[in-house]
Write a protein that binds this DNA or RNA. Sequence first.
DNA 1: ACCTGAACACCGTTCAAGT
DNA 2: ACCTGAACACCGTTCAAGT
Lengths: 240, 240
Amino acid sequence: MPPTPRPAARGRARGVLSLEAIVDEAMRIIDREGIDEVSMRRIAGEFDTGPASLYAHVANKDDLLAHCLRRVVSEVPMPTGETWQELVRSWAVGTRNTFVAHGDIVRLTFGTIAEGPKFVDIMERILGALQDAHVPPRVATWGLHVLSLYVAADAYEGWIMGRIFEDRSGRPTAEVGQEYFQQFAERLAALPAKQYPAITPNLTSLMSGGGDERFAFGVDTFIAGMAAQVPAEGADRADG
Amino acid sequence: MPPTPRPAARGRARGVLSLEAIVDEAMRIIDREGIDEVSMRRIAGEFDTGPASLYAHVANKDDLLAHCLRRVVSEVPMPTGETWQELVRSWAVGTRNTFVAHGDIVRLTFGTIAEGPKFVDIMERILGALQDAHVPPRVATWGLHVLSLYVAADAYEGWIMGRIFEDRSGRPTAEVGQEYFQQFAERLAALPAKQYPAITPNLTSLMSGGGDERFAFGVDTFIAGMAAQVPAEGADRADG
DNA sequence: ACCTGAACACCGTTCAAGT
DNA sequence: ACCTGAACACCGTTCAAGT
């Protein structure tokens, strides 16, 4: 048994209390373990104090998490692309990737209307392109809302799945994931083919593809549905 | 001040402990207040006992919630319709309505692969129709997965929004909701029109429409995107 | 203004003891 | 097999008291 560990070296250096430092610490926990593992007591512990000390900097736990969400939303990159389709796709992928990097914080976006100057700039860029391409305003605005719901749902599902796979004690995540789906596929394959003539032949495609590929399919399919609602016209476009 | 209330009449009659009765009570809480308000102690209290008593019937709280989710999933109705589009739409609407009736339990569906005999029958019905209409297997299976994510996201968002609107102390939910969006619209309307030429004219459509209408738009747009991936063919269909 | 210890009113789960 | 009281190790938040 080693002697008592040097107390100065355990963990990281205790910082001084501030809103930024508290959010930093909360984000560290969220990124690695998810929002449910954030607790006022745990964060306070990192600053060698009690939970009451945090209330000088945040109103409550919800307020702290809202600060974290705002920081993540501000990390969403400006989308790029020549066509509105490329732009919308780029936005969806960029938003998803940003959230995927931060645990399950995406869960807090449901029912929240994003704001902030950067978000407004992004909306302006995309809505402008949709307008130029004669996408009807309702299709444009509602479509972006639907897509943002899908992005959030996909990112959240991805986090939960990763969590399930990790939980099976230390084995490589991808391998455990494969096994998890395999079990499910086997249960479906055990169904009587006579009674389920449609499910049985669809099993391979049902189980195929990784998260990224499926997400891209979902986005592209929805964009195709938006495109189908653009009135066909021999319009003369000034630009392009 | 009235005399001490009759103890027999307060609340409902205390039932006898059983898995079904426990799930009943949990569902009652979920439907009215959401899954975060379910606690082992509160449920146990309804049976005039302590939380430890529940562990003879459920493994833990997650297990109890899983039982609740299974019950709700089993309530999803068999979809109806002549075309695959109608069938898919009917399934999406039916699933959404079922979950909307049960608080935020839909949150537990993320990362969960639904099962149960009834669910399999529903999948068989829809996949069969998609197959008959020559929808490619990948579009069919992945499309249903994407749609189920969207259904869950929409139902979850709806619950959270309703929650926000209710929280503003007692006023009619619809009215508070209107006001909530109005505030948001005003903040956007305050943007300089020169710097944001695309957002400003889109404000009305951005804010228009209720939840049901927007959900239908999302489903129909996605279905249109699926339809766009059906290979055009002068195929001779045996049926219909 | 910022920080703190102690307390309040909660959690989920376990365990030894009962029937 | 089912039930229970007590305990353990947690929560978020408040409050009086300090600087």
